[in-house]
Simulated scan of single mutants.
Amino acid sequence: MASESAPHAFMADAKELVDAGQFGKAIEVLQQGLKKFPKMVSARVMLGEVYRTSGDLALARVELEQVIKAAPDNFAAYRKLAQVYHELGDTASAVKACETILHANPKDREMSHRLEELQGGGAKAAQAKKAQHPEKHEAAKAAADANVKADHAASASAGGELSLTMEGSGEVTDSVTLAELYISQGYREKGLEVYRRLAAEEPDNLRLHEKIMALTEEEVRASQAAAKASQKTLDQAKRKAHIRRLEGWLAVIRGRRRT
């Protein structure tokens, strides 16, 4: 197998194991690789997919949800989550995942077809199965949360604090929904960039320009607030230093009077 120290090499090793049906070993290889390269989002997406393929839907769900929380524009993770939600019987979440992809890329035929199936009631049987044993699903979800947190803690101790970034999830179409998705996840600057590109394509769209102006004004206000807070801290430090000097002089004067 390829050297484990090289980025992406462990993913190739894991793929070979998956192709051979050795899912347990593939999961172990991915987990060990992510301890060395915790920022490889593509490896985490692959780990979620292997969990799903091996039948561990709860772990697959948690792993993939961690990815989209950190990288909201990773549509590969949304695509796999749609399948996981469907198999878990969570139709509402599956529909939402499909719609997120279609808002960014309305021409995605696979997601359009899957959305039609979901809205047509294709997941009713799975939903009924989940309703019969809700305690099992909750227990599996809790165990999955604990396992993933442990994996992430191990990754942080081995390779620094966990920080996920997008690694090229494919071509994405600019849209208002994509911009708002960025903003809702805390990526305000990325959202603003999307709005600016949309405004360049539609210069007569007043709503886009108003949104850009509103976001820009919010950034200015936030910057001003930060500057005021910084100035306040500086003023407080100056006052404390001045008080310490006065106290020092007072101590000297008192000492002279005693002598």
Rank of each mutant, 00 (worst) to 15 (best):
A142D: 11
E218R: 12
A123K: 00
E219M: 14
E135A: 15
R239H: 13
Q31L: 14
G21M: 10
R254M: 13
K129H: 11
A26N: 02
E4A: 13
S3N: 15
E116T: 10
R239W: 08
A77W: 04
S163Q: 14
A153D: 15
A146K: 14
R114P: 00
A153W: 04
S163R: 10
E202F: 12
T53L: 12
T216V: 09
F23Y: 15
D19E: 11
E201N: 08
D19L: 14
V176E: 08
Q31A: 15
G159P: 06
A229I: 08
N105Y: 07
V41N: 00
R61Y: 02
A214F: 11
D204E: 15
V18R: 03
Y187C: 05
V45W: 01
N205A: 14
S169C: 09
A70D: 11
L59C: 13
H152A: 07
G21D: 10
G33A: 07
S169H: 08
D90C: 04
D73P: 01
P72Y: 06
A158S: 15
L164T: 04
I183S: 01
E16N: 12
R79L: 04
S155M: 15
A126Q: 12
K228S: 11
A104Y: 08
L81Y: 07
D145G: 02
D56V: 00
R256L: 14
A26V: 02
Q127E: 15
P203C: 07
M213G: 04
G89K: 06
K36D: 08
M1V: 05
K141F: 13
Q22N: 12
L30C: 10
R207V: 10
R188G: 00
Q83G: 04
I243G: 00
M40T: 01
T165G: 09
G122I: 06
E135G: 10
G121Q: 07
L118H: 05
R254Y: 10
K107S: 13
S3P: 05
L88A: 02
K124R: 13
E87C: 02
A214P: 00
K96L: 01
V41K: 01
Q132K: 15
R258T: 07
M11A: 00
M40D: 00
A14S: 03
A58M: 07
I253K: 10
A226W: 05
K80N: 10
L246W: 10
